[in-house]
Amino acid sequence: MDRRLFLKVCTAVALAPPFLFKGSVRAEESQFKPYKKALLVKEDGTPLRPEEVDPKKQYLFFYPYRSTPCLLADLGKEVKPVQVKTQNGDPYTWPGGVGPKKSIVAFSAICTHQLSYPTPDQSFINYYPSGMVAKMSKRDRVIQCCAHMSAFDPERGGEVISGPAPFPLTAIVLAYEEGKLYALGTLGKEVFEDFFDAFKPDLRKMYGSSRRAKELVDVCEVVDLESYTKEVIRC
């Protein structure tokens, strides 16, 4: 593990309130997986500034692999570190939001239930910003998948609120340094290998080969999800 990243995550964990430390530190550390440090940029290639993230929208970028989609959102208020509950595994500490308001969060947009993810045609898994209440989970500020109605809490590290998902969304650990946003790695259980396996034909079609789909990225273009996909399916 990269020493700098290790220290960064340890710092995030250290900043968390003492009541969060129920699981062993070793178990919590083991949940963080560092990948390439990737700068988040706009379509023109310039760094994405936190104030350019509209709290009423949901954004998409691909990380840690060029084919694995992530949702980025500004929750509009400070999001504090929390201990994330899981069904089977150890709980782990999610470091909360980043940016000047500590309000920006990101999660892998691959549903941990049956791997639904945003494609250029449609997106069944979406963030419902403040004021947009999801019909099925009856709440806003939620990430919900309309394939089987799993709902996740972006304020609590992607924890499962309801539905059949067996564990939280994989959190993307972000950093805010000198006005720029970076992705550092993941926190929580990953489903990337299942994703690569399940969508092999689609990924080959889109990226040319499985190998290319699995390339790690060091720059992530962040786009408005509504402009990426033809239809956002909400329910």
């Binding site: 639904s116 309309c146 394939a147 399916i233 329910c235």
Partner: peptide, 15 residues
């Protein structure tokens, strides 16, 4: 949109 979700529901479970 619910029709599209119907197909996604099935595809995901078959998968």
């Amino acid at each position: 949109r619910l029709a599209r979700a119907t197909f996604e529901w099935a595809r995901a479970l078959y998968r």
